[in-house]
């Protein structure tokens, strides 16, 4: 089955086709770009919420509770949970569904677990494509959950309209748990497990840190407390996400973000396409292998080689395009 064959099913609400399409996205099946192209005009309706935070901060529980809250507000929900794959075997244990059992039979909730795999094209793209597919499928709210461990997670949730950064009391008295790089992208901070000692202090610490942010911003990230286990603070959190969306719309930022995102996306897609085709072309070429050896033994330098190869590739590329134009 190819991705393009699934487009109709996804658009008509067939969850099995959606699930299959996401698998093909993960497997980088060749017709995926075309399928996503066909779905593109049907996207842009869902509000995307990204959630990150250290392991054990209760993210899955929070997502479950938020979903319950959204469902009482008659919103449909799609969830993408990203868990690390083993760098050695590529296998992964995806256990986020354990916490989400109460939505297991709700047809208005779609949950998908993804391993980070060794995505050459970048995990961020696979995730954002999956989110896009769910968006086209028609979910009102799309939640992306990922372990806050580093740069790739930042990229993963960068597609979100609203980014939640979760932390818990304790775990040292500073905010080490929230990695640098993740702090800056938060739209809302959530201190979960508010029943644990030190919750208030954690809130104060985060606020103090926000005070040192020199940027002038109309939206200062609020710092909320929740106890996801008992469902406390969840309605307030969902209200705040709504408020953030309203802020994005009213300030024109949503449109601006959309523009910025389209620009970046086009760039990424082009980069990817060019790199893929270039590497495809070079793979196994004797000239290429010779050049590499020369670089290694210092009889040539990588800068000039790159210049030469790319120039040649672009010239070929131009010729090919012109030829296919002529044939038409």
């Amino acid at each position: 089955m190819s991705a393009t064959q699934l487009v109709e099913g996804v658009l008509s609400g067939n969850r099995r086709d959606l699930a299959r399409l996401i698998s093909l996205i993960e497997d980088e099946e060749p017709s995926v770009p075309e399928a996503l192209g066909q779905l593109y005009r049907h996207t842009g309706r869902g509000h995307i919420v990204g959630i990150t935070g250290p392991p054990g901060s209760g993210k899955s529980t929070l997502v479950t509770r938020m979903t319950t809250e959204y469902r009482t507000r008659n919103k449909t929900v799609g969830i993408v949970c990203v868990d690390p794959s083993s760098p050695f075997t590529g296998g992964a244990l995806l256990g986020d569904r354990i916490r989400m059992q109460e939505h297991a039979l709700d047809r208005e909730v779609f949950v998908r677990s993804m391993g980070t795999r060794g995505h050459l094209g970048g995990l961020a793209r696979a995730t954002s494509d999956a989110v896009r597919a769910i968006d086209a499928f028609g979910k009102d709210i799309i939640i992306v959950e990922t372990v806050g461990a580093g740069q790739s997670e930042v990229e993963v949730i960068d597609i979100a309209h609203t980014i939640l950064v979760i932390d818990v009391p304790g775990a040292g008295d500073d905010i080490q748990a929230i990695k640098a790089g993740i702090m800056e992208i938060a739209d809302i901070f959530v201190v979960n497990k508010s029943d644990m000692p030190g919750a208030e202090r954690k809130v104060t610490e985060i606020n103090a840190m926000l005070d040192t942010d020199p940027r002038e911003r109309a939206w200062r990230p609020p710092v909320l407390m929740t106890n996801a286990r008992d469902g406390e603070g969840i309605a307030g959190l969902v209200d705040t996400i709504d408020a953030h969306r309203k802020y994005l719309v009213d300030s024109g930022l949503l449109a601006e973000k959309g523009l910025q995102r389209s620009r970046e996306e086009l760039k990424t897609i082009m980069e990817h396409k060019l790199t893929t085709e270039l590497m495809e072309k070079l793979k196994g070429l004797p000239e290429y292998e010779r050049a590499i050896k020369k670089i290694a033994d210092r009889s040539d330098d990588p800068y000039s080689v790159a210049e030469r190869l790319i120039t040649k590739f672009l010239a070929d590329y131009g010729r090919r395009v012109a030829e296919s134009e002529r044939k038409r």
């Binding site: 996401i22 569904r97 059992q101 297991a104 949950v111």
Partner: peptide
């Protein structure tokens, strides 16, 4: 890639998870 859903699964829950997770 292994999806584990925990205890007390009805056949309905199992099949739904299998489909969503493809």
């Amino acid at each position: 890639e292994v999806v584990y859903t925990g205890l007390r699964q009805t056949p309905e829950m199992i099949v739904e998870a299998a489909i969503q997770e493809s």
